[in-house]
Amino acid sequence: MIESLVKANLNLYAVLRNLPLLVKSDPVAAKTVAQWRIGIQFVVWRGPAATLVFEDGTCVFERGRHGNTEVVFGFITPAHFNRMMDGKGTPVPLKGFRHLGFMRNEFPKIADRLAFFLKPTDAKLADPHYLAVNTRLTLATAVFAARELALFDPTCRQVAGRIRDGAVLLKILPDGPSAHLIFEGGEVTAGLGDVQRPMARIDFRDQATANAFLNGRLDPFTAIASGEVAIRGQTPMIDNLSLIFDRIPGYLG
């Protein structure tokens, strides 16, 4: 029960929330949504909710229900939402029957594009564009998922309880992309981009290293010792955070 709720949080707040980043990073995705002008809410009964707005070729994601969107999708349980995210279930439109055609035929195009970039294979990763987008999205998924797990997964909550206040920065050298997590008084915030004066940082030597690391294809201990991945600062924050990262595949793998 709690597991499917946490998974629903991850699916919405860490996976679907990457649609704006996808639209920014991938010309095919950008082209797909170029003409869209629609707001969609995803509402999980006793679970997470979010609002996605496509407009003028951009995509905005917000946690919670905002404004009066054209479409509202309801899910009777977190498991119901998770089934849709696994491509096995269909949502119940609470509003916007007029847009059913769009939801059935258009929206899956962007959802599929997201899934395409989040399921890497060796062959796909050989393409530099795929590598770049997958790295960006995986980095974002990692920090957003870590936030949800730190707050809601019972074991990760214990682990997060050991993380002192301050920011942890993850950065691909030389100039990004980067992402961060801020721990403060029991609150956890995840975000993209740099932070000033992090308490701890993980620097990836280059994109290929970051990609291998984030996709679990690189032994972290060996990578750190050899300098491919550099950790500095309050490294117990990183040790504990990595215990949280390591639990993401258990939900999304």
Partner: peptide
């Protein structure tokens, strides 16, 4: 595993180099 494991792991030595 890990090259050097346990408390001799270079990971907490910053930078390992």
């Amino acid at each position: 595993p890990g090259g050097i494991y346990g408390h001799f792991s270079p990971a907490p030595l910053v930078p390992p180099s």
